[in-house]
Amino acid sequence: MRYDCRVPGPPLDEYIDDIYCLSGVPRHPRVLVPPMPSAHLFINLGGPVRMWDGDGSAEPVTLVDGWFMGLWTKRFLLEYPARVRLVGVHFKPWGLSAFTDIPASELRDRCVPVDAVWQRALDRIRNQLGEVTASNDALGFVERELRARLAETPSRTLDLVSFAGARLERSYGAVPVTALADDAGVGGNHLAAQFKSHVGLTPKRVARIYRFARLILSVDARRPVDWSEFALSAGYFDQAHASREFKDFTGYTPTEYLRLRRKFPAAAGFPPDAGPMPAE
């Protein structure tokens, strides 16, 4: 499966990490996705995608034409069709708030049809994407759609969350919440309330997801791993703390994760393999 992406220019880059196309035959039809610091838009031009919560014990949800997904706080499973054609957007944790009036708490840990967020938009978007074959043209179309929908003047509270969130992003969650509030010139309770409004989570929980992302993205399964060193460099108090977080977020112990990664090596130049992992 091929992954093509572009990072949009200002001002979209304040709210979006990248716009991407997935196409072709999936290397691993079923993948486990741990919590990562992204909200999503998916426009599906291929067959249905199935999704399970957590350990896959519940009945799957079938996702068809297009859906938004807020920030996810627990792992989930995705099963791709035999051939994939999907255009997506990785939003920063606060990014969706710049493009919709729906409270972030209503999108957290949920998949919502595109038309529930952008009314009567999905058929037009899918039809226009269906007419282009080049990934670059599809990415350009989605970028123009996002620019047209970006609020001309973001609210002051979104600016506050974007400022504080960018610090968490750059530090992978290492900045204490009290320091975030002090630097922003607001109280901790006010900052937490605005994060809940625009992200759906408190800054402390967002920091936790960024910290885990740093841990998992820095692991090179091809080499011996010193988990104590990795835990400390990612901002964990000790290895035991990092191991508990790892098990909670992925369902695997660090040792089990390495075994899985070595059995199914990540594809070179395919960024989604850095977070999502094959589900056995």
Rank of each mutant, 00 (worst) to 15 (best):
D220L: 08
A174P: 05
D220E: 03
R170S: 04
A166T: 10
V219A: 13
E229G: 14
S228H: 07
A207L: 12
L191D: 03
P176A: 13
V219L: 04
G188M: 11
P176C: 14
F230D: 02
A221Y: 11
R170E: 00
H198M: 11
S171W: 01
S218N: 04
R222Y: 03
A166G: 02
N189H: 12
S162T: 11
V206I: 04
S171Q: 01
S197E: 08
A174W: 00
G200H: 07
V199F: 12
G200I: 06
R214D: 03
D182M: 07
V225H: 06
V175T: 06
P224T: 05
G173R: 06
W227Y: 11
I209D: 02
L217A: 11
Y210P: 14
I209M: 08
A221V: 00
R222G: 15
D183T: 02
R205E: 13
H198I: 06
G188D: 10
L180F: 14
P176F: 14
L180T: 08
A213R: 13
A179N: 13
G187T: 15
T178F: 10
A207S: 02
A192I: 15
R205L: 13
S218G: 07
H198D: 01
R222T: 12
H190P: 03
A164V: 09
G200V: 00
G187L: 06
L168A: 03
L180W: 15
I216E: 01
H190T: 14
K196V: 11
K196E: 07
R222D: 01
G200P: 08
V225N: 12
F212W: 09
R167N: 02
R214G: 13
G200C: 02
S162L: 00
S197N: 05
L201P: 11
A184D: 00
V175N: 04
N189T: 08
V206L: 09
V225W: 04
H198V: 11
N189E: 03
R208W: 01
Y172S: 05
L201N: 08
Y172V: 00
F230C: 15
R167F: 01
V186L: 12
L215Q: 03
T202K: 05
D226H: 05
G200N: 07
L201M: 09
L191T: 01
A193R: 08
V199K: 03
Y210V: 05
S228A: 09
R211A: 10
V177I: 12
V186Y: 10
P203W: 07
L191M: 08
N189I: 01
S218M: 07
G188S: 12
Y210M: 13
E229I: 14
S228D: 12
H198C: 09
L201F: 03
F195P: 04
L191Y: 11
G187F: 02
L217I: 14
I209C: 14
D183W: 10
T202M: 12
E229C: 10
L201V: 00
D226Q: 08
P176T: 09
P224D: 06
R222I: 06
H190Y: 13
D183Q: 11
